[in-house]
Computed example of a mutant assay.
Amino acid sequence: MRYARLFALLFIVASLSSFGVPARAQSASASLYAGEVPVADQSDEQRAIALKSALAQVVVKLTGDRNAVNGEAVAKLIESADRYVQQYTYRQDVANVDGQPVLRLSLVASFDRGALDRVLRDRGLRVWTPAARAPVVTWIAVDDGNGPRLIDGADPAGRAMQLVAEQRGATLVWPRIESPDQAQTTAQIVWEGDVMTLSADAARYQTDTVLIGQLRRVGDAWSARWTLALGGQAQPVWESRDADLATALSAGADGAVDRTRGRSAAITEERRITTARVWVSGLQSAQDYARLFETLGGNDLVREFQPEQARGDGLLVKLTLNLALDRWLAYLPPEGVLRVVNTAPPIDGVEATLALNP
């Protein structure tokens, strides 16, 4: 059994790596400060209402708390949404309703990051910083009586789960499965809840957080069992049940966010100031340098940074962080401006190497 499990582990990791295909993921950090709301028209009245709704969405994403908008202090903030909006635009989409094309209009608004962070903290709310939002590698297996099969973000129920996570500012990562044999083998491993095997590949996505869901059809409802693994260690299991598969899956997303938010709070309390030198490559222009400096300057876990040496397309940067370097590297979003190349490079005076994404 030991060797069979080892073979399964190598099968998953080797298969994912050999295809060289990135996981499907939605980057939450890119849209944390933006909201989108359907509107009937472009009138001033509709816009004023939509801006308030868009800001309410942003508050939920920034805090990760669905109930954050219920307090009196936040209600007053939302009433003043026009004070914090940086820009807005309208988007038209064509939806299919009962076989007929229907034109739908939405207002998309982005809000001032610095101002919102300050005002939320002033009102006693903790902003769940982008750097502290570990992506969640998500493995879901469902059994409707014909044996377990995998569900991912391409499935309608998976998309509903993805939406719930995005509404709370979280990122789900769906590892891509390329062959029927791989899907069948992996579905069985997910169904068995093998935390060690399923956590083995999480480091590829700069995270140590894995969500495992097993959903079984029982009568007219779906019964779900959820496990969140942090650093390869399974946390207490929780369950959900609903007649609708999408709703049962959404409970898994909500549970994962609740638990990862709590973990982030604990990490925040344990912060300590550290210094480290990192080498950043891929800097081809003044615009690339500007992107790097803006990213470091906007990262709440970076107290300060100081360029020390430039050579070729690279730059040596001294970082002063609010936590250990390995924790900071783990919180870099997989589709962000920076990606980790090596966490232990054989270079004197350099503790990690990174690269600027195109």
Rank of each mutant, 00 (worst) to 15 (best):
S53E: 14
G282K: 02
V69C: 12
A56I: 07
T268C: 00
D258T: 08
L215E: 05
G282T: 09
V317C: 03
L51G: 01
V237G: 07
Y331E: 11
D117C: 05
A115W: 06
R5W: 11
M196K: 12
G114P: 03
G213V: 14
Q184R: 15
V60D: 02
V350H: 00
V39D: 01
A229S: 13
Q86K: 12
G231E: 08
T274C: 03
A4N: 13
W328S: 04
A131V: 14
I12W: 15
G64M: 04
D326A: 09
A141Q: 09
F19P: 04
D65R: 13
V302E: 02
D258G: 02
W222V: 01
R118Q: 12
E270W: 10
V94Y: 06
S264D: 14
D208F: 08
V173Y: 00
R47K: 15
V94D: 04
I49Y: 12
E192G: 13
A50V: 09
Q182T: 11
Q182V: 12
L16K: 13
E269K: 14
E79I: 14
W174H: 03
R2N: 13
A25V: 15
L62H: 05
D65T: 06
L356M: 06
G99P: 06
A109T: 07
R291H: 00
A234W: 14
G336K: 08
S18Q: 11
T275H: 07
A266P: 00
V137D: 02
N299M: 12
L62C: 05
N322G: 15
R66H: 08
L163Y: 11
A141M: 09
G312H: 00
R5P: 05
P156W: 06
T353I: 00
A224C: 15
G169M: 03
V119K: 00
S15K: 07
L32F: 09
